[in-house]
C-alpha cells in the first residue's frame, strides 16, 4: 500500500511542479516565449510517442502527423459538442475547472480516436516486414489531411472552429501540456523498461529470433504502434486548443518530418533523447522562423551531418539521468586532468 501512497505523493509533487512552472512562465515570459515552451512540451509528447515505434520497435512511421490530425479534430469536435451540451453550467465554473473538464475530455477522446486509427492502419501493414509501414503511413498522413481538407463538417481548408465566429476555446496552457508530457513519458518509459521493451527491441534487431522465442511479433508491433498513435493524438488535441481553429495545413508532411528529426537528433530508442530532440526542434524552428522556407533543406543538411558525425543521435539508445550526468562530468574532469 505504501507503494501507492508514495506514488500519490509523487503525482501531487509533479502536478505542483507543473503548476508552479506554469505560473512562473506566465509571470516572467512574454506570450511568445510561453508559446515556444508549450511547443517544447507538445514536441516532447510527439517525439516520445513516435520513438516507441520508430526507435524501440524499429518500424518506421513517416505519417504521424496524420494521427496528430485525427487527435486534434477528434478532440476539438468533442470539446465543442461538450460545450454546447453543458452550456452555461460549464462557463459558470472557474477557469481551471473549465479547462480540466473540457480539455481532459478532448485529450482522452483525441487519444482514443488516434489509437483506433493506429490500430486500423497498423494491423494490415505491420503484418508485413520491411518498409511497408513507411509507405502506408506516408499515404495515411496525406489521406487524412485531404479528408479533413474536403470535409464540410470540419470546415474544409479554412479549418475547424466549431462553427463559431470566435473559434475554439483556447484551453491549453503550459500546465496541461507539461502534465500530459509527464504522463506520456512515464507510460512509454515504463513500457520500454519492462518485458515489453525487451520484446520490442528484440523485434527491432531480429524478427526471426523474436518469433523463435515465442514473441507474438505482429501483436507487439501493433501495440507499440497504437500507443504511439495515441500519444500523437494527445499532442493533437492539446495543439487544437492552443488556437482558434484546427487547419489541415497544420498536418502536412513537414510535421511528420519534424517528428522524425526530433527522434533522430535525440537518439532512436532513447526516451530522454526524444524529449531533448523535441525541445531542439521547437527552439530551432522559432530561432530560424524568418528562413522558414529553407527549413526542410536545413533539416536535411543537419541529418546528413549528424549521420556522419554522430549517427546514433545525441544520446543513442542511452537514457539521460542525473547519476549518468554526474559520472560523465567526473570522467570528463579526471580525463581532462590527466
Amino acid at each position: 500500500m505504501s507503494r501507492w501512497l508514495r506514488r500519490g505523493a509523487i503525482a501531487l509533487l509533479v502536478v505542483a511542479l507543473c503548476w508552479g512552472l506554469d505560473r512562473l512562465f506566465e509571470a516572467f515570459l512574454v506570450e511568445y516565449a510561453v508559446r515556444i515552451v508549450i511547443f517544447c512540451g507538445l514536441n516532447a509528447i510527439l517525439a516520445v510517442g513516435l520513438n516507441l515505434i520508430n526507435g524501440t520497435t524499429g518500424q518506421f512511421s513517416i505519417g504521424h502527423a496524420g494521427f496528430m490530425a485525427v487527435g486534434a479534430y477528434g478532440g476539438a469536435y468533442t470539446v465543442v459538442q461538450l460545450e454546447t451540451w453543458l452550456g452555461p453550467s460549464l462557463t459558470a465554473l472557474p477557469t481551471f475547472a473549465q479547462q480540466a473538464v473540457a480539455l481532459t475530455s478532448g485529450v482522452l477522446v483525441g487519444a482514443t480516436v488516434a489509437a483506433i486509427a493506429g490500430f486500423l492502419v497498423g494491423v494490415p501493414s505491420l503484418r508485413l516486414r520491411g518498409d511497408y509501414l513507411a509507405i502506408v503511413t506516408l499515404g495515411f498522413g496525406e489521406i487524412i489531411r485531404l479528408l479533413f481538407n474536403n470535409s464540410e463538417t470540419f470546415g474544409g481548408a479554412t479549418g475547424y472552429s466549431g462553427g463559431r465566429p470566435l473559434g475554439l476555446t483556447t484551453y491549453t496552457s503550459f500546465f496541461w501540456v507539461a502534465l500530459w508530457a509527464v504522463i506520456v513519458v512515464t507510460v512509454v518509459a515504463h513500457l520500454t523498461r519492462s518485458s515489453y521493451g525487451r520484446a520490442l527491441r528484440a523485434i527491432r534487431e531480429d524478427e526471426i529470433a523474436a518469433e523463435a522465442v515465442g514473441l507474438p511479433t505482429t501483436r507487439l508491433k501493433v501495440m507499440a504502434f497504437v500507443v504511439s498513435a495515441a500519444a500523437a493524438g494527445i499532442a493533437g488535441a492539446l495543439f487544437a486548443h492552443l488556437q482558434s481553429a484546427v487547419r489541415p495545413d497544420d498536418f502536412k508532411l513537414d510535421r511528420s518530418v519534424d517528428m522524425i528529426v526530433m527522434i533522430i537528433v535525440g537518439g532512436l530508442g532513447s526516451v530522454t533523447g526524444a524529449v531533448l530532440g523535441g525541445i531542439f526542434v521547437a527552439v530551432t524552428l522559432e530561432l530560424f522562423r524568418q528562413w522558414a522556407e529553407y527549413r526542410l533543406v536545413a533539416y536535411a543538411l543537419l541529418l546528413v551531418v549528424l549521420m556522419i558525425v554522430r549517427p546514433q543521435g545525441l544520446l543513442g539508445t542511452r537514457e539521460l539521468d542525473l547519476a549518468a550526468v554526474g559520472r560523465w562530468w567526473r570522467a570528463r574532469r579526471t580525463g581532462g586532468a590527466s
Binding site: 525487451r198 527491441r201 534487431e205 515465442g214 539508445t317
Partner: peptide
Amino acid sequence: EMTVRENVMVAGH
C-alpha cells in the same frame, strides 16, 4: 544490442 541476461529474459515474455 542487449545484455546476455536480457537475451535470456526475452524468451520468458
